[in-house]
Design a protein around this nucleic acid. Structure first.
Lengths: 334, 334
DNA sequence: CGGTATCATGTTATCGATAACAATTCGACG
DNA sequence: CGTCGAATTGTTATCGATAACATGATACCG
């Protein structure tokens, strides 16, 4: 019950040095096969549990990859996360996750904390950070990847897509199908950067095509989801009919809008088009299916893993910039 | 660019011993306030970053709480996770997350790995584990909490609810509203334990009330989601009309069923009742709203945190068993 | 002014695994 | 039987922070 079992104890039990035990447990072939087996056996019998902390300390390699996400309560980010976990597991690395709750100040705090764990790489979501965060990272010899965005002034490597371009595809499609009076449904100003970029992307895209100015429907502070979309449309009531199309910041918001519009007796897409963002499962299953943009969330995770793999194998020179692109997925709401 | 900055370096720069630096950075009041400030200043100037690995090694306290979840790609678990992250952050603890992908063998592997990080507590989802997992945990002086379930033979503390009872509420409600021919929609046999318990819970509940035997509609291997529910109903086609009510293993599955049923031209709830499980957002927003069971996912997380807090403050004696209960939430699909 | 309580800082040893280097054993072969 | 190279095992020092103990400085008392 008392002291924990260490390699020293195992060594004593087998009658060898701790060094041999260390080697044996790591399957070092310089150790005699029979010895290896015996060490394994004894270690098991004694209930020995390897101490990664000591290893991390001695070798100065933590085996951690630190990742920040705005939230895991978002199927999109969760998909990226899953791809990361699975892929990194195969590389013998463990994920150290932190959620920023969509706030860069929280991200800063988180990065500060994560860095004390001596991660072997840092993966951040998005390209917007506080100056302090940038300072913390720069000058440090640590691979950094920004994902889910294509920042103008990246910290290191990048695996993402252009939110602006994606929005442009959406607006292009709406314009081509004869919609003119668009409204953007998203979070309030300032809070969420990704949302803000999508909003201005939609506004720009409409201007570029000579459409009337895009109205902005505020669904509340980030993160916004189904209920916020629904509430925003309920609050508008039948006034929403003044618009041709609702361009939503995400699929959950779009689904909320769709549901509220249907309850108001509006016909979608006849009276009102609705578009989402992110290619969430709900967009594929809802009735009607929601037109959306696939941002390849899982692929982003896979690409980050393969990039990291290259970095750890010293096969990467300068900063890499991977654009996974985005694709309009036509549904029945537009 | 070379060597990293350690406390020794800071100490040298301030002209004091590393011990004083250590104390100063931890805000030990035995250190003179002016000294403390100076140390802080110099540490900042040198870009010193605290090394949690060394601390964890020396003090034998990792600052980690290890958590296993079946998946984060599930709004329910994600909510629990968020509550855990936020709460543990306030306790100065960091979450070390692993996903089991709904498989106990994967859980075993994960637990083995997580234990090497010397966590201060272990939080497992569900009450079903391999024998090896139990062996790994028992005999070890480590607080263990099983959540999301009320196991018969718990490993330690428990914060959960009874899946069987919850299902009983659903069936009771359906029986009272005149439904007799029920079908359960969930994952294939064997894969997911929680789903299996819900299935047998529904079957038992129907038997107890003298209803005809519950049919089982297989939606594929776990995890099942919207698309699996939809596909299962599409495959059945209008044969689904032989049932009064679809009892679904989760809200996403229920939403998939609902959507498919509507596309088949069935009227819900007139022709067919549908119930979900978990009180996901989609159940509240869908059209019609889905009758479901609130399992208080966020509350589970909060309760786990408060339990851990008590454990670390040595205020907990024997194993604690907390039933957070579950509540039927009536929608418009039943 | 001597002595003691209080405050502030320093010294030493240590947590467990492993890199780097050293030493030993063993077999093969001339 | 001696020698040499390969195979196998051992020794020592170390990663960075900190608990436990020791010491020095300062204030305060009668």
């Amino acid at each position: 019950m008392g002291a924990r079992v260490t390699m020293r104890d195992v060594a004593q039990a087998v009658g060898m040095s701790p060094m041999t035990v260390s080697r044996a447990l790591r399957d070092d072939r310089t150790v005699n096969a029979k010895t290896r087996a015996k060490v394994r056996q004894v270690a098991d019998d004694l209930g020995y549990v390897y101490d990664s902390t000591a290893q991390a300390f001695r070798t100065q390699k933590s085996g951690f990859v630190a990742v920040t996400l705005p939230s895991v309560n978002n199927a999109n980010f969760a998909e990226t996360f899953r791809a990361l976990t699975n892929g990194l597991g195969d590389l013998g690395l463990q994920l150290l996750l932190g959620s920023t709750n969509y706030r860069v100040e929280r991200e800063e705090e988180l990065v500060r904390q994560l860095l004390t764990r001596n991660p072997e790489a840092l993966v951040l979501t998005g390209g917007h950070h506080t100056d302090e965060t940038r300072k913390l990272i720069q000058g440090r010899d640590l691979p950094v990847i920004e994902m889910w965005d294509l920042p103008v002034d990246p910290l290191g490597h990048v695996v993402g897509f252009s939110n602006g371009d994606a929005m442009d595809h959406v607006v292009e499609h709406l314009a081509q199908t004869g919609r003119r009076k668009l409204a953007f449904v998203g979070a309030s100003e300032g809070a969420d950067m990704r949302g803000a970029v999508r909003r201005s992307g939609a506004i720009e895209a409409a201007r570029a095509r000579g459409l009337p100015e895009v109205a902005v429907i505020d669904a509340g502070p980030a993160p916004v989801s189904m209920r916020h979309g629904a509430a925003a449309i309920e609050a508008l009531g039948r006034d929403v009919a003044q618009y041709d199309a609702l361009v939503c910041v995400s699929d959950p918001v779009a689904f909320g809008c769709l549901s509220a519009a249907q309850r108001l007796g509006l016909r979608v897409p006849d009276d009102l088009a609705i578009t989402g963002f992110g290619h969430f499962e709900v967009a594929k299953i809802s009735n009607p299916r929601i037109t959306t943009v696939d941002v390849h969330a899982e692929d982003i995770g896979r690409q980050v893993v393969s990039l990291l793999s290259g970095i750890f194998d010293n096969e990467v020179d300068g900063p890499i910039r991977t654009d996974v692109g985005s694709a309009l997925v036509l549904g029945e709401t537009s």
